[in-house]
Design a protein around this nucleic acid. Structure first.
Lengths: 356, 356
DNA sequence: ATGAAAGCGCTAACAG
DNA sequence: CTGTTAGCGCTTTCAT
């Protein structure tokens, strides 16, 4: 009888759910006891526990995380801001973060900033007002402006994929060294006129991935005493079409590249197609190397040589760090630099000296 | 003086934020007035509004969405469950949802079910306990089990990418017709031994995309009086490597296909590479058609013919429907079927009759 | 081991 | 137009 009444009562409510009072009443205990049962407190008699569980089941009760968060001032939620989830690189990072968060019972609010700084800031505000316990921020730049916004917000923060000189933990690869390695490899294969397809350089003012990588490229070229052709350094947008256009321009220019280094696999794939469309062959006429080592790199033809980033790990490590910080645990290292790897595949070929 | 005290007080608090009381005190008004200001109530004097805003700014106050949600029993958040964000198809759907949600000031909790039904159910529970206002569920199947779970949970729900006979709104394309169209096109080009690479068929028991599409394929084959070879119907996993393996098996078998219809562009790309690796040419020896029309389809070589799905719109329409349902507005149509489009590109060629 | 009660930050009658 | 007050559902002392 009582149960029926309770259920009927609840029916009128929009969010049609039993709450802790209902359970307490039905189980003939106090709300405190119900709370204890659902928080696995040891100080509950077996008898009380059972009747609470029974009542909860009967009413279809589940604790409201909302109310709990408010009471505990802890949401068990982290915010994640990425520039563009439709980029497979980020999907993979997200997977790493997700897996770790699942282990530690954290939820994620994923924010797709759409490569817009305004949106990033908007999302930071939103996450703050939702009391997320911390934020993982993945962007290819980290400006003073963003730094100050975060500083004002006072939320635990970990940077993924981007280093900074500010005192903020991050997990990255050594982009400069990675680009250096890739370029050096191309040079070792006899390539001399090497083109680059990079992303936004942000006027070289702030540190962005593409700037690091471009420096790495220049390091290697300089070391080898090779000429760097301005016409072979093209800006693009990390998309396949962008890579295609950039490569096309190069191939139609005065200085023909014998190799192209694209700062993402997707752009590299575009470049390979531009080479085909120009009536040339990859790698016979132009070698191509990418960056990221997406799954796709392995199955394209020619298979794409590339610099492998540990995308999943970047996410996973960032998440581990953030959760430790939230829990006020010591983190052994605030600046984590993960290893990159050069992956050689068919899109690069050794160039004979005489052919040049 | 007063301000300083307040701020100091707050410092001790873990979530170091000013709350509505602080603002009310500093502005010399009641909390109700502060609340009114932040909810744009017209019944506030200009004077009060100003001093509230000033105080809020001084204290860096932002309303807690958490507390607001609890008080209003509305979170302005929707849950989104997808099988695998690393699949570009889903990224694009997510973008559509996001854009609409941004307009209507909804937030999204994105759940990546990792193609696991257990995880899906887990996420449904989580979303429920977070009081999301509604859920968009994108999966390639919708089983009785899942239906009943949702029914018990009583949360507004919209299905994306999957039709159902249950009384649940959905937005989809006509998968059967789409596959029929693609197959018919291949047949019209003179192909006879057509292979198929599909996804999980779930024992043909529940309706999943691949089953619909397979039926569409069979419809067209039957209509044309063509023989369907079991050896040319291969199951795969919607990934490039899977498509590669499936195509390889076909090409090494007794019955050589003259065309392959892959149920996703990614698998189609894998198939094209398998064709190359078998020493054959696409489209000269084997034509390939995909499904989805990802950005990538346009930039691969040969460019990939495919069945275009309006991915972004599937997301956007689903989000619009859900928000209307949440707001108790009439929705004109509960079952939305969006248009697919056949996109012809170089990976399909006309086969001469004599060559077969 | 258990209950009463205060409080988390906000909204929404209600009364003025 | 504004303030008072009673919740929203949960956790957490503090008694018992």
């Amino acid at each position: 009888m009582r149960v029926a009444t309770l259920i009927l009562l609840r029916r009128e409510c929009i969010v049609c759910m039993a709450n802790i009072d209902d359970v307490a009443k039905l189980a003939n205990v106090s709300t405190a006891t119900v709370s204890r049962v659902f928080n696995n407190s040891p100080y509950v008699s077996e008898k009380a526990r059972e009747s609470v569980l029974k009542a909860a089941k009967e009413l279809g009760y589940e604790p409201s995380i909302l109310a709990r968060s408010l009471a505990m001032k802890k949401t068990n939620t982290i915010g994640l801001i990425v520039p563009d989830i439709s980029n497979p690189y980020y999907s993979e990072v997200v997977r790493g973060i997700e897996d770790v968060c699942n282990i530690y019972k954290y939820n994620i609010i994923l924010c797709n900033a759409d490569n817009s700084r305004d949106k990033e800031i908007q999302y930071i505000d939103m996450l703050k007002s939702r009391w997320v316990d911390g934020i993982i921020f993945h962007s290819d730049y980290f400006s003073d402006e963003i730094y100050h916004i975060f500083k004002d917000r006072k939320i635990p923060l970990v940077l993924a994929g981007r280093a900074t000189s500010y005192d903020i933990p991050y997990v990255v690869i050594d982009n400069r060294k990675a680009a250096y390695d890739a370029t050096k490899y191309l040079i070792s294969q006899g390539h001399k006129k090497i083109g680059v397809i990079h992303g936004d350089l942000n006027g070289m003012k702030e540190t962005v991935d593409s700037v690091d990588r471009l420096y790495g490229f220049l390091d290697a070229m300089k070391e080898a005493g090779l000429k760097v052709y301005d016409e072979l350094i093209k800006e693009s947008n990390f998309k396949a079409k962008g890579g295609y256009m950039a490569a096309k321009e190069m191939l139609m220019g005065n200085v023909k590249p014998d190799a192209i280094f694209a700062f993402s696999d997707i752009m590299a794939m575009g470049a390979i197609n531009a080479i085909f469309d120009a009536g040339l062959k990859c790698p016979e006429d132009v070698s191509v190397i990418g960056f990221d080592n997406l799954d796709l790199a392995e199955v394209t033809r020619p298979a794409l040589a590339t610099v492998a980033q540990p995308m999943y790990d970047i996410g996973a490590v960032a998440a581990r760090m953030l959760i430790k910080i939230i829990d006020n645990k010591k983190i052994s290292e605030k600046k984590v630099i993960l290893k990159h790897r050069l992956i050689i595949r068919q899109s690069c070929i050794k160039r004979d000296a005489q052919k040049i």
